[in-house]
Deep mutational scan, measured.
Amino acid sequence: MPSETPQAEVGPTGCPHRSGPHSAKGSLEKGSPEDKEAKEPLWIRPDAPSRCTWQLGRPASESPHHHTAPAKSPKILPDILKKIGDTPMVRINKIGKKFGLKCELLAKCEFFNAGGSVKDRISLRMIEDAERDGTLKPGDTIIEPTSGNTGIGLALAAAVRGYRCIIVMPEKMSSEKVDVLRALGAEIVRTPTNARFDSPESHVGVAWRLKNEIPNSHILDQYRNASNPLAHYDTTADEILQQCDGKLDMLVASVGTGGTITGIARKLKEKCPGCRIIGVDPEGSILAEPEELNQTEQTTYEVEGIGYDFIPTVLDRTVVDKWFKSNDEEAFTFARMLIAQEGLLCGGSAGSTVAVAVKAAQELQEGQRCVVILPDSVRNYMTKFLSDRWMLQKGFLKEEDLTEKKPWWWHLRVQELGLSAPLTVLPTITCGHTIEILREKGFDQAPVVDEAGVILGMVTLGNMLSSLLAGKVQPSDQVGKVIYKQFKQIRLTDTLGRLSHILEMDHFALVV
C-alpha cells in the first residue's frame, strides 16, 4: 500500500459497493488471473465517493441489488447463522422517566444476534452475496479491517462455511474481542490505534497488504460494500417497522461504517417519512454534520465500534436529520445504567446512543415513540467499562463513588512517597548505550525526554532486548525507535489509591 493515498477510480455505471474482489474501477472485475494482476490496485480507499443510485421515491424494481426479506425461524435451526436477525424490541421503562421523557422509549437489542452484535447481519450478508456472485469459493481466505464486531461476525460465518479468516484490528480494541476471535479460529493482526486510516500501518493498510500477498484472499470491505446497508434496509428496518406496527417518530443510532443508519433510515424514509433520524458520533470522530460539531482538541476516545477519521463510502449522511456528539463518560455511564436499571447487557456504544436519545427525544410528546439501536453486548468489555477499576483509572468514576473498604494508605498523596527525580535518556542515544546505562543503574525503564525536557515516551529494558533479539533494531539504532509513546501519567497530588489502580493494569506510571 502506498504512503500517498491515490484516488480510487470510478467506473461508468453500476453501484460502487459490489461485493467481491475490487477492480481499479471499484466494481467486480472478471477475466484471467493475468488481467486481474495487471488491473487490481494495491488498495482502494474506504472513503471513495459513493456511486449508489438510491433515491427517495425511486421504484424498488430499479435497484441493481439482490434483495432479501426477513424469514421466520424454524423450530430447529440448521446452523447458528440462522440465529442472525429477528432481534427483540424491548421497552426501556426507567431511564426515559428518569430523564423526563414523555414518549415511549424502545430498544432494538442487536446483541441477541448469534455473534453478539449488529455486525453479524452485514457479515453474513457480505459472505452470502460474495458466494452468490462467485467471488468467494471453498478454501478462500477472508481478510477484514475491523474494530472487532464485524470480525467476530465474519469469523463466526467463516467457521460454519469453512473459510480461512484473518482479522486486522487496532490495538485499542478489547482483549475479549481478541479472545472470541481466536476461539472462532480467526487469525488476528493488531495495528497502532493512532495510525491514520490511509497510513500503511493502519488496520485498513495492513489488511490490503495481506490481501496482495495471500492468494485467493478477499477483503469484503464493510466500508464500501453495498451488502452492509442492504442488510439493514432489507431486514433490520423491516423488523423495526413490523415490531412497531409502522408507528415510530424517531430513530437514534450510533454511527461507525454508517451501514446501520443508512440502511434503516432509507427504508424508514420510504415507509415512515415523518420519522426523524438521529445520528450519534463520538467526540474525536469526524462523521457528524455540520462540520463545526467535529471541532475539538480530542483525537482519541475509548468507546469502541463507532466514529472514524474518514467518511466511509457506505455512509449516506443525507438521510440523517440531526447529529449529536457523545463523550466517553456519558457513554459508559449510560451503558452501566442500562445494565443495572433495565437488565440490558449492552456495550458502550449503546450507552452513547441512549445518552443522546434522552436529549433528542425531549421534543417528542406522549403517545409518540423513539427507537434506539443497541449494537453489541457487554461480553466484549468485561475488563473495560464493566470494571470499576478501569473506570477509575480512566477518570470516568471517582473514588467516592465506590463504597468498598480501602487499605490505610489509600488516600495518601503520591508526594508522600518522597520520590527522587528519575533517570532520563535522550532519544538520540543508541539502544546499546541505553541498555548499558539501565543495567549500570539497576533500572528496568526510563523516560525519554528531548533537550527541552519534554517527555516523549518510555523505554524499557525488556522491550529493547526483545527488539534486538527479533532483529527489529540494532544496538547502533537510536533509542527513539523503541519508545512507548502511550503511558499513564500521575500527579504528586493524586492518591496512592489512584496509582494502585493504574499499576494493576500497566507496568509503570510516570509522575509529573
Results as ranks from 00 to 15, higher is better:
237 A>R: 01
242 Q>M: 14
112 F>L: 04
135 T>F: 11
272 C>N: 05
6 P>E: 10
69 A>P: 10
154 L>Y: 02
140 D>A: 07
136 L>V: 08
225 N>P: 02
261 I>R: 01
7 Q>V: 15
71 A>M: 11
80 I>S: 07
221 D>P: 03
76 I>V: 04
255 V>M: 10
256 G>W: 00
187 E>L: 04
101 L>A: 02
200 P>H: 08
65 H>L: 02
258 G>I: 00
237 A>C: 12
13 T>M: 09
32 S>N: 05
5 T>Q: 09
230 L>E: 05
135 T>D: 04
174 S>C: 00
275 C>F: 09
107 A>E: 07
61 S>F: 10
271 K>A: 10
268 L>D: 01
107 A>P: 07
84 I>Y: 11
223 Y>N: 02
179 D>I: 02
67 H>A: 08
130 A>C: 06
91 R>I: 06
150 T>I: 00
70 P>I: 10
63 S>Q: 04
176 E>S: 07
137 K>H: 09
51 R>C: 03
190 R>P: 00
241 L>N: 01
72 K>I: 11
126 M>K: 06
114 A>D: 08
9 E>V: 12
225 N>T: 04
128 E>M: 14
214 I>R: 05
166 I>M: 09
55 Q>F: 06
268 L>M: 07
40 E>D: 12
35 D>E: 15
224 R>D: 03
122 I>W: 00
67 H>C: 09
256 G>M: 00
138 P>Y: 15
57 G>R: 09
62 E>S: 14
158 A>M: 02
265 A>H: 04
31 G>E: 14
260 T>C: 08
150 T>L: 01
118 V>T: 06
156 L>Y: 01
270 E>Y: 05
138 P>R: 15
78 P>V: 06
50 S>C: 02
184 L>F: 05
162 G>I: 07
188 I>G: 00
185 G>R: 00
86 D>W: 08
265 A>W: 02
110 E>A: 02
269 K>L: 03
95 I>S: 02
162 G>P: 13
125 R>G: 08
115 G>A: 13
15 C>W: 09
242 Q>E: 14
61 S>R: 14
145 P>Q: 00
74 P>D: 10
146 T>N: 05
9 E>I: 05
92 I>Q: 01
134 G>R: 14
157 A>S: 14
145 P>I: 00
221 D>E: 09
205 G>Q: 12
101 L>G: 00
16 P>W: 05
156 L>V: 07
62 E>K: 14
272 C>V: 15
241 L>W: 11
180 V>M: 08
91 R>M: 05
221 D>A: 04
14 G>P: 12
147 S>D: 02
259 G>H: 00
151 G>I: 00
115 G>D: 08
179 D>L: 04
47 D>A: 05
66 H>M: 11
124 L>P: 10
183 A>F: 02
248 L>M: 13
149 N>W: 01
91 R>E: 10
128 E>F: 08
171 E>I: 07
49 P>D: 09
107 A>Y: 02
96 G>D: 13
109 C>E: 01
35 D>P: 10
194 N>Q: 11
126 M>Y: 06
55 Q>S: 15
240 I>P: 02
117 S>K: 05
187 E>N: 10
80 I>N: 07
187 E>D: 15
48 A>Y: 09
184 L>N: 01
20 G>N: 10
210 L>E: 01
149 N>H: 03
235 T>D: 07
24 A>Q: 12
141 T>N: 14
149 N>S: 03
208 W>I: 08
31 G>F: 13
146 T>H: 01
225 N>Y: 00
51 R>A: 03
7 Q>W: 03
70 P>T: 10
154 L>E: 02
92 I>H: 03
28 L>V: 14
185 G>A: 09
212 N>T: 12
154 L>S: 02
91 R>K: 13
47 D>C: 03
259 G>E: 02
232 H>E: 00
261 I>S: 02
132 R>F: 08
110 E>V: 00
263 G>S: 01
72 K>A: 06
149 N>L: 04
82 K>I: 09
78 P>T: 12
36 K>W: 05
21 P>D: 14
274 G>K: 11
49 P>W: 09
195 A>S: 05
270 E>W: 03
153 G>R: 00
231 A>M: 09
235 T>M: 07
